[in-house]
Design a protein around this nucleic acid. Structure first.
Lengths: 170, 170, 170, 170
DNA sequence: TTTT
DNA sequence: TTTT
């Protein structure tokens, strides 16, 4: 449908280390398991209660997948922005199942580290995007009027995967 | 967990009329089925492709449930803000299933009508919230310095459900 | 206008301690100064560059104002959700000036502490909203079908300002 | 600062036609003036009140600037996602002034048309991003496992500015 | 399975 | 004025 928005914003902690699969191309695809929770005081009992929600995140965005692979671990706190996707699959017994995931597509989504332990958080956006260093080379090296505005963080670079150092702002 | 955020933002269209259940209290709970979609041009074939994603939305927020019940119908375009929740259930054969929904809890979430047909869209927020006209009475009737700032939209009112007219800004 | 959304989401650090004013009613209004920044690698020089943006936040939401007053300090990292407002004012010389602020109105907005130092972050939403303990009393103490769904965090309570303990989920 | 987020989400209507400036490179930069508003019922007077907020949006993202130039006009309803930036300038009399704008940087931000008049809304994201057709060529034309997942909308293409048709999903 |  |  034209004119639609599908956006999920999470701030939470990883329940386990990132899981990395590798595509035929060598590109990493990273799965995260992220917990968010709410707590409140039960009016009846006066007890403090808490409910945790678990989210499955899949990162196809190559820059963000590499950042996740290198910098996230069990317990890390992250800001994640992606979109909802539900996919159908079959379990071993042939039963139809549905899974809803937060997906960061190629060139899309955001991932920001929020804990300072271990060397400091980092900030990564799809803005690093595009990725082709050819088109990006000139983008951020110019001194055009536009560039006098603060430039977006850049990525892309000389290697096949871009210069990952570009993605790491610390 | 302290320090977490769980937020979904959708702009899409209803695939069918809202489904309204009523709690023992008489409060409506509304289920929506919302489509978002993306389209892109396939680089290989040159064809324009489109993929639609369907979302299940559950509205417990009483003000927003009543607005949904009264103003939404199949085809309506809405802005929705809620949180992700996955719940487990069993199908007829006893199979465990999981469903992920976008939930608008009591006093939470947002719902904004975006189509102008039928008299114009409306805007409704959790800010109408709280809902007790007792506590709200003074909130919006004062002329305190704070109130010289634009007040949030108000709801609540004289009836059990509040004065629904308060929620309808058109 | 019917059908509009005005939302700002910030994750950043306080540049100084919160400033608290008090309304005639005794309600606190809190001003925050929050920094966000981006860093990128300049393609020309190869240098890493950084640009910081400063944001003025005004919290009218009473629960969140009290949380900000008590738990935030210079350096704190927070997640903030509010709306943009531009107001006109005159400086000493009578010059017209405009200031754009991120405002958390009564019953609106969100504030979540993100740093774990100093006792852990907390999570606070407008969902605590409504605030009148009269209307909220029953809301969270029931065992209605709806309440078997995870309830939203509660606030409100016995004192004029509600039981602030309800707002503190740790 | 590492670990920060600066995001504005607006749904509103253009108060006038887009203003297009052109950089030395020929790239368009588009300025929009967008209204959002809230309405509420005054508890004192019983009157319905409304307050409109005006926002200045600047689009450096080339794909989105071209879309804005071609498809938006006074009255159009749009979903916009950008970041807050305040810049200092001097008026004719040398007075220092500050302006806060919502900026869509290169490869960043989102713009979605929400009105159906005139042939339907369109959806455009930073995901179109990056834009180098070299890197994008293979991205969306492959039949790699990743691509069996729904691909993101693509842009970029054969011309200097990319194939703008790629950006127009209707 | 996280976090407080 | 923060943070890394």
């Amino acid at each position: 449908m034209a004119g639609s928005v599908n956006k999920v914003i999470l701030v939470g902690n990883l329940g386990r280390d990132p899981e990395v699969r590798r595509l035929g191309s060598g590109d990493p695809v990273v799965n995260l398991r992220i917990a968010t929770s709410e707590s409140w005081k039960d009016k009846q009992s006066g007890e403090r209660k808490e409910k945790t929600e678990w989210h499955s995140v899949v990162i196809f965005n190559e820059n963000l997948a590499r950042v996740a692979e290198q910098y996230l671990k069990k317990g890390s706190k992250v800001y994640i922005e992606g979109q909802l996707q539900t996919r159908k699959w079959q379990d071993q017994s042939g039963q139809e199942k549905y899974s809803t995931e937060i997906v960061l597509q190629r060139f899309r989504g955001e991932l920001t580290l929020l804990d300072s332990r271990g060397g400091g958080g980092g900030e990564y956006g799809d803005d690093q995007g595009g990725g082709g260093q050819i088109s990006r080379g000139g983008d951020f090296g110019s001194s055009s009027p536009m560039e006098r505005r603060p430039a977006a963080p850049a990525s892309g670079g000389g290697s096949k995967y871009g210069d990952i150092d570009d993605d790491i702002p610390f």
